[in-house]
C-alpha cells in the first residue's frame, strides 16, 4: 500500500469579518496517497482554490490540520516546513499572469535552480533547463530557451509553468484549473504530459477543475472529490462516482451536464430540483448546504443537521443523511 502523502483533517477557512465573513471552506477532509491523483471538482466559488492553497501550505486553515507525510505542517520546525513547501508546487490557471514577461524561458527556469543550489554554474543550468523542456515536450529545447513568454502560445506557456514547477523536484503538484484556459484542441496533450510526470517521476497530483469531464479523463484510474458551497459532499474512485453517484448533488450534477455526443446527451434522465437558487457563502443554508435544492430532502433533519462525510465502503465517502 502506498503511503499517505498529504492529509487535510477537518480543515475550515474563513475570510473577512463581521457581515462580510465568508466561510470559504468548511470541515473538509481528504487524503492523497503517494503517486496518486485526486481530482477536486465543483462549481466556481465552491472553495477549490482555497482548499488547494491550504494543501500547498500557502494558506493557513482557520481550523483543522494539514499533514504532510504524517507530520502536522503548521507545527513543523522552520527547516521541515521549508522542505515541505519545496516538495509542493502549484500550477495556476493563467500562464500569462504567472510568468514574468521580461524574462526568457531560460531565466524563468534557471532562477529557482540557482536559488536552491540545484546547479552550480550556468553551463549546468542550461543543460538542466533543456532537460526540463524536453520533459514537458517543448522540443528541441534550443528553440525555446531564449524565447519570451509572449512569443509562445498559451499551451507552450503552460508547459513552461509546469517545467518551472519541476525545477525543485516536487513530490506533489497542485494543478489549479491548469488546462481550463487552454484551447480545447490542445488540452489532451497537456493532460497526457501531466500524467506522464506521475508515471515517470512519481509525482502526486491534486488536480482542481470545474469540468467533470476533464476530471474523469485525467483521474480515470484514481479518485474524484466533489465539493459544494465549501463542503465536501462525495469522494469515490472515478468510475464508480461517474456510473453510480451516491450523493444527491453529484447525481444532479451528472445528469445536468451536457455531453459532447448528441445521442448520449439527449437521452439523459432528468432530475428536478426543489429550488433554482444557488446559495450564497454570506448566507449559508442551515444543516446540509444542498437542502434547499435537494430532491431527497427530509424536513427536520436535513435543514437542522449538517451531515458528516463518512465512509460507505469500497473506498467511498458520502456526506448525506439518506446515504449510509
Amino acid at each position: 500500500m502506498a503511503e499517505k502523502l498529504i492529509e487535510l483533517d477537518h480543515i475550515g477557512r474563513t475570510f473577512g469579518q463581521g457581515k462580510q465573513k465568508v466561510r470559504a471552506v468548511d470541515n473538509v477532509s481528504l487524503t492523497i496517497k503517494e503517486r496518486d491523483i485526486l481530482c477536486l471538482v465543483g462549481e466556481s466559488g465552491c472553495g477549490k482554490t482555497t482548499t488547494g492553497r491550504i494543501a500547498a501550505g500557502l494558506l493557513r486553515p482557520s481550523e483543522g490540520r494539514v499533514l504532510f507525510q504524517g507530520q502536522d505542517v503548521w507545527a513543523m520546525e522552520r527547516k521541515e516546513f521549508k522542505r515541505y513547501r519545496k516538495a509542493v508546487q502549484i500550477v495556476h490557471q493563467d500562464p500569462y499572469a504567472s510568468l514574468n514577461p521580461t524574462h526568457t524561458v531560460y531565466k524563468i527556469l534557471s532562477a529557482p535552480l540557482l536559488r536552491h543550489n540545484l546547479v552550480t554554474n550556468a553551463r549546468e543550468a542550461r543543460l538542466k533547463c533543456a532537460q526540463l523542456l524536453e520533459i514537458v515536450d517543448l522540443t528541441p529545447p534550443g528553440d525555446f530557451l531564449d524565447k519570451y513568454p509572449h512569443q509562445l502560445s498559451g499551451g507552450q506557456r503552460q508547459r513552461v509553468s509546469v517545467a518551472r514547477a519541476l525545477t525543485v523536484n516536487p513530490s506533489f503538484i497542485v494543478a489549479d484549473e491548469a488546462v481550463s484556459m487552454i484551447d480545447v484542441s490542445i488540452r489532451a496533450s497537456l493532460l497526457g504530459m501531466l500524467s506522464r510526470l506521475r508515471e515517470q517521476f512519481g509525482v502526486t497530483f491534486l488536480f482542481i477543475t470545474h469540468d467533470l469531464a476533464l476530471a474523469k479523463h485525467f483521474a480515470w484510474e484514481h479518485t474524484i472529490a466533489v465539493m459544494y458551497v465549501g463542503s465536501m459532499v462525495e469522494i469515490a474512485p472515478t468510475p464508480q462516482l461517474i456510473d453510480e453517484p451516491l450523493h444527491p448533488y453529484t447525481q444532479a450534477l451528472l445528469v445536468a451536464i451536457p455531453e459532447a455526443d448528441p445521442h448520449l446527451t439527449r437521452n439523459k434522465p432528468r432530475v428536478s430540483l426543489r429550488s433554482m437558487d444557488v446559495p450564497s457563502l454570506l448566507n449559508l443554508p442551515s444543516g446540509c448546504r444542498f437542502h434547499p435544492r435537494c430532491p431527497r430532502f427530509v424536513e427536520g433533519l436535513c435543514d437542522q443537521q449538517a451531515p458528516d462525510l463518512v465512509p460507505v465502503g469500497d473506498g467511498r465517502y458520502v456526506a448525506c443523511h439518506r446515504v449510509s
Binding site: 480545447v184 490542445i186 489532451a188 469531464a213 474523469k216 461517474i242 451536464i257 459532447a260 455526443d261 448520449l264
Partner: peptide
C-alpha cells in the same frame, strides 16, 4: 479532443 462525462473512458487526441 473533447471527453464526455458518462459513457466510459475514451482516448483523446489533441490537434
Amino acid at each position: 479532443a473533447v471527453p464526455t462525462v458518462t459513457g466510459g473512458f475514451q482516448e483523446l487526441a489533441s490537434i
